[in-house]
């Protein structure tokens, strides 16, 4: 999928509607009140599983831990037949090769964070080198962080050029741009950063690193989804969305899917265009699926940790 967007910064990229925070919050509150019947719920749970970027981004990550997580990605809960695999494994660049090997020829992608994750406080050369390293190791997707310090200081062109340069370094790998909305302050800034990232070539925009609170929230995600929608109406180009961090219950995941469906529609309701960045969500969804199947509430004791 080739994009024909010009990777040249123009101040007009920043122009957008002012965000009505109260309106956004009221709108998102309604997504949490939809009545979801049992059959749809089951479909939603399975869809959620298939959209998860199963993530481990800890200093203590080891080869064993990553291999274990890859096994979990392929075998979520073998006691149940017909479960999907997750969409991708998300690791640090040093573990890409391990993950790639463990996942072999399955359809599960390997995503790697890059660009001095999570703070992004490094030089562009190091960020580019890290990106090239992750791609060379076999990463299918790159999750980069934007330079929030520069963004908040008003150096939008720097941020734009950085994203465009990383995009070029990604080659065939899809680029997810992490805005780290918890550090941006206002929904207006979220909108602005989303427009900037999309114009600079992002294949996905992603809320958070998961290292900062608040991480993904429904209002922030709605603003980003609406940016994607406006971009689609204007250019016909689709951009993916990945809320990450803090989505740990299946109920909340279903709220996100409702919002996605009512904002971007069925075309985005698949792992190619929507992901959940999460580490504990998968098991919570499995608990709910087990409850639907067996008719009684479940215990985490009967599910593998990772």
């Amino acid at each position: 999928m080739k994009t024909t967007r010009p990777a040249v910064f123009k101040p007009s990229l920043l122009a957008g509607p002012a965000i009505d925070q109260t309106g956004v919050e009221e709108r998102t509150a309604r997504f949490t009140k939809r009545s979801i019947k049992a059959a749809s719920k089951m479909q939603g749970l399975l869809m959620t599983l298939s959209m998860i970027d199963l993530t481990t981004l800890e200093g203590k990550d080891s080869v064993g831990k990553v291999e274990q997580l890859c096994y979990k990605a392929l075998h979520l809960h073998d006691a149940f037949e017909g479960l999907p695999t997750v969409a991708a494994i998300c690791v640090y660049p040093s573990h890409v090769r391990t993950a790639k090997k463990a996942l072999q020829d399955s359809l599960v992608k390997v995503a790697s964070v890059a660009t001095a994750f999570p703070a992004g406080q490094s030089s562009i050369d190091i960020k580019l080198a890290e990106t090239r390293f992750a791609v060379a190791e076999g990463a299918d997707e790159i999750d980069m962080v934007i330079s929030r310090g520069k963004f908040l200081a008003g150096e939008y062109e720097y941020v734009f050029d950085e994203i465009a340069a990383i995009k070029a370094a990604c080659g065939a790998a899809r680029l997810k741009v992490i805005l780290e909305t918890g550090e941006l302050g206002s929904l207006d800034d979220v909108r602005k950063a989303s427009q900037l990232a999309i114009a600079a070539g992002a294949d996905f925009i992603k809320t958070s690193t998961g290292k900062i609170q608040p991480a993904a929230t429904l209002p922030v995600t709605l603003v980003m989804l609406e940016t994607i929608r406006d971009h689609y109406y204007k250019t016909g180009c689709k951009v993916g969305m990945k809320p990450a961090g803090g989505i740990s219950t299946s109920k909340l995941a279903l709220h996100y899917l409702v919002m996605l469906n009512e904002t971007l529609g069925a075309d985005w309701m698949n792992p190619h265009w929507f992901r959940f960045g999460a580490s504990s969500l998968a098991n919570n969804v499995l608990l709910q699926i087990a409850k639907e199947k067996e008719g009684c509430y479940q215990s985490p004791n009967y599910f593998s940790v990772d």
Binding site: G295, C296, Y297, Q298, N301
Partner: peptide, 8 residues
């Protein structure tokens, strides 16, 4: 019934 059947 829900409490007594609860696996946790």
């Amino acid at each position: 019934p829900w409490i007594v059947e609860h696996r946790d």
